[in-house]
Amino acid sequence: MGIGSDMYRQQILDHYKNPRNYGELDDPTFSHVGENPSCGDTIKMDVALADDGETIERVVFSGDGCAISQASASMLTSKLQGTTLAELEAMDRDDVVDMLGVDISPMRIKCAVLAEKVVQDGAKIYEGELDVETTKTEE
């Protein structure tokens, strides 16, 4: 059998090895962290909003963990630049799976959606609709 993989396509591996928008912002509008303790996946998302208070001007992530969680975070930061908080909140897990472009096995969905949930929860906390310290996507 070759070394090809259904889940670890080139795009995923590329984002894992060369993450986009990796780092922290000096003065984010809001910032939030997530962790799946049993995996050891951690993700922090920093978001700077434009003056309209609605448009995501800049979003970066930092963290550590498996290729699925980190590649998903990297791809999400690219996708979110210039979108609005309303568009962010309308996203669901299917959008994440579409973005990744591969079949994510049921046991790994929690890795794939961690970044999305972190930035969504961060936005809700910023808007006063949620009060959590750390976001988790595992049971």
Binding site: M7, Y8, C66, I68, S105
Partner: peptide, 14 residues
């Protein structure tokens, strides 16, 4: 350089 969950997923594909 490979998280255990990634490793396990790749093993599972085989």
């Amino acid at each position: 350089g490979v998280h255990a969950h990634d490793l396990s997923s790749i093993l599972n594909e085989r």
